[in-house]
Design a protein around this nucleic acid. Sequence first.
DNA 1: TCCTTAGTTCAACAGTTATTGAACAATTGG
DNA 2: CCAATTGTTCAATAACTGTTGAACTAAGGA
Lengths: 118, 118
Amino acid sequence: MTLPHPNTDQISLPIVLGVLGDPTRLAIVRYLASKEGVPLNCSQFLDLGSKTNLSYHLAKLREAGVTRAEVVGTNRMITLRRADLDARFPGLLDSVIAAAGAEPALPAVGGHEIEISA
Amino acid sequence: MTLPHPNTDQISLPIVLGVLGDPTRLAIVRYLASKEGVPLNCSQFLDLGSKTNLSYHLAKLREAGVTRAEVVGTNRMITLRRADLDARFPGLLDSVIAAAGAEPALPAVGGHEIEISA
DNA sequence: TCCTTAGTTCAACAGTTATTGAACAATTGG
DNA sequence: CCAATTGTTCAATAACTGTTGAACTAAGGA
């Protein structure tokens, strides 16, 4: 089972900007960037909202092409689509992440150590 | 008479991103960037929407700290707050503008040659 | 098999957003 | 003073957004 993602050339700038213009989603992206290469499941973000709410925001990010979600068992492993974003909008992601670092951010996400059931 | 603007340290990243996540406003910013240094009045943007609508979008941009509006006679001269944005979020504006250039953009804004009544 | 874990979907809701036309204010020029 | 120009404000509306709890699906482990 796979989830729908836009391909690289379908990623739209206003949609990406709009999606990043929400503090919760910005915090998600920031956390993903800080753990780049490590796929994370949704429950890692529970500090940022309820399970339902996270599902909503993560779907927005995925549909915008900002993240990729891969189904592994009952988990969805979430990664930043850095290469695709860099290809499409060079420098954008980096400057957003750097700017988010300078901002008075949301409460940091704590590292819930989990065991992934594959 | 002056209009309210946030000062540099009050400019918020999610608000800026949210404001730029609208095709009309993105087109306004793009046009401002292409004419940097030249202050423009609102009627320059009439291709992008009705007068009322432009007033709305330009207020959003100003309140977010993206643009500055100076009252000159019956005109409001609008400029990009590039220095402030660069200071606060280095590289962000440039990458957004570059990305907007690559996108299948809105119909270009034609140069209505006007005489500013000061 | 049954229970648990991970996450989605749904309906509902309050709040916000974009858009419009009509009316208004302020300035400039005749 | 009168008229034209520039732009704002207002009320109305339709659409979208973020958030919630309850119900659901799917997979894994005992």
